[in-house]
Amino acid sequence: MPANKKHLTRSPWQRLAKLIAGFVGGYCITQLLFMLILKFAAPTETLITLQYAGFAVWVTLFLVVYLVENGYKILALYALLCAVLYSLINLI
């Protein structure tokens, strides 16, 4: 019953890329997303939502990583998303 290995990512670098994308990238996107919301929405409500719902957003972004076959691609995509969110925050 262990998962069939032929469907799993073998390369340790690929796996590391996915882990970083999910854990670090997911966290950064969550943070930046809420920072962007903070620019428009009431601060108290936004921050309190971040305090619990942030984990739900983060874990979702973590899971999405594993939908993609190529770890580098998703890492690059998350980095790009971070850059976009970051510049939006600074522009507004």
Partner: peptide
């Protein structure tokens, strides 16, 4: 099949 196995593995 691929996704099933991938998620199975992450769950494990």
């Amino acid at each position: 099949q691929r996704l099933y196995n991938v998620f199975f593995h992450t769950h494990t």
